[in-house]
Design a binder for these strands. Structure first.
Lengths: 239, 239
DNA sequence: CACAACGAAACTGTCGACAGTTTTCTTTCG
DNA sequence: CGAAAGAAAACTGTCGACAGTTTCGTTGTG
C-alpha cells in the first residue's frame, strides 16, 4: 500500500524520524512517554520495520532511550543533562571555531553578517533560536571536519529539546537574552574573520557558556512557591 | 533455529556488530569491501533483521558507510580522515580531561599509575595500544559527562581502525613511540592529580597531537588541498 | 579486440507473521 | 476497601517472503 517509495532509497525511516524528532523537540511527545512501534507504524501507515529504524536514529540523536525491556521512551531531561549537553557543545564548537578560523573567507563573514541581521529582525523567540542554531551549524561546517559536524548534530537535537524544556519552565525567552546573544555572535565573528584560531575557540566557548547561563537563572533565588509544584528539579548542589 | 536468544533482550544485533567491528578494526574486512546483509546473515546463522541493525550500529560508529544505493561498505581511510579523527579526539578529550581534573580523586591517580606501569611492561604493540586507549577511556569516564563518553566512543573505533591502517603503512610501532607515549601519559597525570582543569585540557590536547605525529611520518606539506571549494552553499541564512 | 546491449543473479527496502515477554486490566480474596 | 492473583491485550525480537533495483557476467557486434 505504499505509494511513494520511489527515488530516494532508504528514506522512509529518515522521514519518520524527522517527524518524530519534531514532535519530541516541540514537546508534542512528552518526556517519559512510551513510543510503541505498532502504534507509530499505524500512525504513519507503514510497517514496523521503518519505524524501528527511525527509533534507532532517534536513540542515536539522544532524543529517546531504550529500556532494558526493549521499550522506547522519550528521553527525560534534568539539570545534569543540560550541563552535559552544554559541555559537549563547548567541546565540539570551540574546536569547530578553531578550525573554522583557519580557513575563514570573506564569503563566510558575509554569511554570518546576514545571519546576525536576520537575528535582529526576528520577531518570535522560536524564530530567533532557529537562526541562532543555524549560525552555529554554519560555523561547524566551516571547520571542514565532517566528523565534528556529525558529532555536533547528535548534540544539536538534544540542545533543541533542552530549549523547549527550559522554555516550559520560564514562560518565554527574555528579549534581553536576544540582544545579548546577538552581541555574543558579533564577538564570535571577530576572531573568525581575523583568522585567530585560539581566540575563536575561546570566544565561542565563552559565548555558549554565557548564553546558557542566561537561560537558566543561575542565581539560587528561592523560587516563588506559588505555582512551582512540579517544576523544580534540583540534583546535588555541586556548586 | 536460534538457541540463545534468552535473557539479554535486544542483544543479537549488538553481538553481531561487535564481531564485525573486530573484523573491521583488525583488518579482516578490508576497507572498501561490500558487506551484504544476506551473506552476513548466513554467516551468523540469523535472519537479515538483526544484521541490518548491526550495520546501523557500525555506521553510527563510523566503521562502515551506506552508499546511496543502500549498499554497505567498510569505510575507507585517507589522510584527511586521520586528521578529522584526531581533531575530534582532541576536542572531546581535552574537554574530558578538563572536567576530570575538577573531580579527580586519589583513587583515580592510583588507577592511572597502575595503567602506566602495565604499559611499560607491555610486550607487543597491540597490547600497548589497548592499554593506551583504555587509559584515555578511563579519563573520559572520570569527566562524569556521559554524553561526552558516548561521543568519544564513536570516535574511538574509528581511531582504532586508523591505527591498523597506519600500522599497515609502517610495519610496526616504533618502540620509541611507546616510551614517548608513556612519558606523555605521565605529563597528563600531573595536572589531573593537581586538579588543574585548564592545564589538563592543554596537556591532553598536546599529548594526542604529539602521539599522532609520531605515528604518521610528518608530511612535509601542510595538506594536499584536495578540494578547495567547501561550504558556502547558500548565500543567505534566512529560511 | 573492445564495447555495448542483454539477462541472470544478488541485494535492498518493506511487509506480514509468530513466539515469548511485558504490561495492563479484571477478578477474587482477605 | 485494598491487595494479590490471574487473564487478556499489547509489545518486542526475529523470521521468511516479495517487489523493485542494482550489479555482474555473458553474449553479440562493430
Amino acid at each position: 500500500m505504499t505509494k511513494n517509495h520511489a527515488q530516494p532509497r532508504r528514506n522512509l525511516p529518515h522521514e519518520i524520524a524527522s517527524q518524530l524528532r519534531h514532535d519530541i523537540i516541540s514537546g508534542t511527545c512528552k518526556p517519559g512517554e512510551a513510543l510503541a512501534e505498532p502504534v507509530l507504524a499505524g500512525r504513519f501507515g507503514v510497517s514496523r520495520a521503518p519505524v524501528r529504524e527511525a527509533m534507532i536514529e532517534l536513540e542515536r540523536a539522544g532524543l529517546v532511550q531504550f529500556e532494558p525491556t526493549g521499550r522506547t521512551r522519550v528521553r527525560t531531561l534534568e539539570e545534569k543533562d543540560i550541563t552535559e549537553i552544554v559541555e559537549a557543545r563547548i567541546a565540539l564548537e570551540s574546536m569547530g571555531a578553531r578550525l573554522a578560523a583557519i580557513r575563514w573567507t570573506a564569503a563566510n563573514t558575509r554569511w554570518i553578517e546576514a545571519s546576525i541581521a536576520a537575528q535582529e529582525k526576528a520577531t518570535t523567540g522560536v524564530k530567533f533560536s532557529e537562526l541562532d542554531i543555524a549560525m552555529h551549524e554554519y560555523i561547524m561546517q566551516c571547520s571542514g571536519n565532517e566528523r565534528l559536524v556529525t558529532l555536533w548534530q547528535y548534540v544539536r537535537w538534544q540542545f533543541e529539546m533542552a530549549l523547549t524544556y527550559i522554555h516550559s519552565l520560564q514562560q518565554k525567552m527574555a528579549p534581553d537574552l536576544r540582544s545579548f546573544s546577538v552581541m555574543g555572535h558579533r564577538n564570535v565573528l571577530k576572531p573568525l574573520a581575523g583568522r585567530q584560531p585560539e581566540a575563536a575557540a575561546k570566544v565561542m566557548s565563552q559565548h555558549i557558556k554565557d548564553s546558557i547561563e542566561w537561560y537558566t537563572p543561575e542565581t539560587p533565588e528561592p523560587q516563588p512557591a506559588a505555582k512551582a509544584t512540579h517544576a523544580g528539579k534540583r540534583s546535588t548542589p555541586t556548586k
